[in-house]
Structures are given as C-alpha cells and as structure tokens.
C-alpha cells in the first residue's frame, strides 16, 4: 500500500509543475498577443485562443491529480 502522504504530494506536484509550465508558456504568448492587439484590435479573438492553448497542460495536471486523489 502506497503512503497517502506520497500520493498527496504527487498530486500537488502534478498541479504545481504543470501550472508553472502553463504560466511560462502563457507569459510569452500573451505578451506577443497584446503586442499584436495594440497594432490591430481585431486580433483579440485570435490572441485569446493562442493564449489559452497552453492551459490544456495544467488541466491535464489537474486531471492526473484528481485521479491520484481518487486512489487515496
């Protein structure tokens, strides 16, 4: 039987690290998107889409964490 503490820790790491990864990716994309938007406001929709694409990473992290939590 695996220690519950270890599972909790892993779940935390799964969310935390993927969160950081998403943040890093979004930092670059969002600043570029804002730059593009100042040139042409119509790009808001496209900018928004590009910016939220890395969010999938943290969602996967969250799902992994949930699956781990269910095994506790």
């Amino acid at each position: 039987m695996v220690d519950n503490g270890l599972i909790a820790l892993s779940a935390g790491l799964a969310v935390g690290i993927t969160g950081l990864a998403t943040a890093l990716a979004q930092r670059d994309i969002a600043s570029a998107a804002i730059g593009a938007m100042t040139e042409n406001e119509n790009l808001f929709g496209k900018g928004l889409i590009l910016t939220v694409i890395p969010e999938t990473i943290v969602i996967f992290g969250l799902v992994v964490a949930i699956l781990l939590w269910l095994n506790m």
């Binding site: 969010e55 999938t56 969602i59 969250l62």
Partner: peptide, 16 residues
Amino acid sequence: VSNVLSYTRLIAIGMS
C-alpha cells in the same frame, strides 16, 4: 485523444 481529454476541464473547473 488530447482534444477529448481537453473536455475534462468541464468537470475539473467545476470541481476546483
């Protein structure tokens, strides 16, 4: 696969 998994956010966000 990744597209379908992406929809888990529907529940993950509600859960959070």
